[in-house]
Design a protein around this nucleic acid. Structure first.
Lengths: 255, 255
DNA sequence: ATCTATTGTTACTTTAGGGGTAACAAATGT
DNA sequence: ACATTTGTTACCCCTAAAGTAACAATAGAT
């Protein structure tokens, strides 16, 4: 007979460090309040011989209480206590790990100024980092209002201390955002909507130049999003010049 | 050549969800700041072919940034960010898990009044729970001042709202604790210091009767500590009578 | 242009842990 | 006394992770 447990709950408990059988047995005992091995086996379909093994482990961990006898009864310790313990142990481990990692990280000059970031989280994380370090000026280009909106709060806050210059492909699309936008020339617009690399549509969704020294460009090619960070003041200066120019007609040439 | 990594750090990162090779490679890249596969291989001893595999996984997870080229360079994302992310995801999972578990836990009368607790954490946890629920009176017997001290703060707080009666085997041992103690009779003292069960020295370290309704006894046998919780008002009443009596001479008979 | 060294990739093997099964001794119920 | 249930132990299988070998592609040196 099939198991009657919530697979998502089992999966979550596995992510919290329990094995599959441990998760099933704990959930079984929580459901039944007090239970024998047979009852847990019938509810969870974990093999009876394995139930006893897991009972021992969970008791040692402090997740179950035992009423000895035949049959032996088991009772789950309050989930709030158990999950609290698991969480505390994990957080303590995380703190210790961070301390140890920080001991490794010695401050060397970053020799290479060009990096790719491939995870969604890593890209957003880095954008927020760049915004938090900006001191004087940001030039922000965007072609995707939904994406830009994710940084709206951070950018609004930054307006108080930095000069922000927003450049977009079509002002109309960005009306819901509380900033002042400039639109690029028709030629540049045509250009950026027309880039194909290796057979995939390439689209620059967001580009930021911070203080003329560092830039990050987020683009998608096909269904894959990637970011490139450039920390070369000279190149950023050139990029800034270019972006200043795209507001004027007749800049971009197509070969 | 042997690996130059801190095994404790590797183990900690495994507890945080990374595989052994992922942990080693991340630590290697953190150590080197920016590194090629060969450099990471030389530092960590992870097989070179495996380095590339792990690089891909860690980049996807957002733990590494990539400078494409030959050789490709990798740079670690700030450990504070990475560990922060891992921690956040874990805590979110723990919260969701607790919600799901709470949906299971329906309030049934607890049919069985006698339970064993076998983990150190579980015993302490339950003692604190009993102390927090006490309303009128606690009778506390102890033979181990160090162990009793762990509950000193909770007991001091409780003195304001409950009547606490402390009974110990030897007042002298408990001088450092800020409570008023009564000592058991010499006969009882001899009795409790003389219990052997199945060849192991048995010692009742702590015994608490809460409001005459529930009791917990913590004993060690050999090197194993265990607790028994009893929620039988009648038995607790008998136990209370017994403890009242041990303060008088001539009570315990040895057969 | 050729050769060597290095880099990056792929396929295969090995190992260990977790899950499943079967058998049997001990305990309980009839 | 017998049947059923409980609890234990030994063994097997599968999968994920780690290790290894071979080879194609690239870069550097001559």
């Amino acid at each position: 007979m099939f198991s009657q447990l919530n697979p998502q709950l089992i999966s979550n408990l596995e992510r919290l460090g329990l094995t599959e059988n441990e998760a099933k047995v704990y959930v079984g005992v929580v459901s039944l309040r007090e239970a024998t091995a047979r009852e847990v086996h019938e509810l969870t379909n974990v093999p009876r011989a394995k139930i006893y093994e897991v009972f021992k482990v969970l008791s040692k961990k402090g997740y179950l209480e035992v009423r000895q006898g035949s049959p032996t009864y088991f009772r789950a310790v309050d989930p709030k206590q158990v999950i609290g313990k698991i969480k505390d142990e994990f957080i303590n481990c995380a703190i210790e790990t961070l301390d140890q990692l920080n001991e490794l990280s010695y401050e060397l000059p970053k020799t290479s100024p060009v990096w790719c970031i491939q995870s969604e989280w890593g890209i957003k994380n880095r954008i927020f980092e760049i915004l938090s370090e900006a001191k004087e000026e940001l030039i922000i280009f965007s072609s995707n209002p939904e994406y830009l909106q994710e940084f709206e709060a951070a950018l609004q806050k930054l307006q108080k201390t930095c000069r922000l210059i927003f450049i977009v492909d079509e002002i109309e699309k960005f009306k819901s955002l509380p900033f002042e936008f400039r639109e690029v020339t028709q030629e540049f617009k045509d250009f950026i909507h027309d880039i194909v690399i290796d057979g995939a549509q390439y689209k620059e969704e967001l580009f930021i130049i911070a203080d003329g020294k560092e830039s990050i460009g987020v683009h998608s090619a096909g269904h894959k999003r990637e970011a490139v960070v450039i920390r070369m003041p000279f190149v950023c200066y050139l990029q800034k010049m270019i972006y200043n120019k795209v507001l004027e007609p007749g800049f971009v040439k197509k070969d």
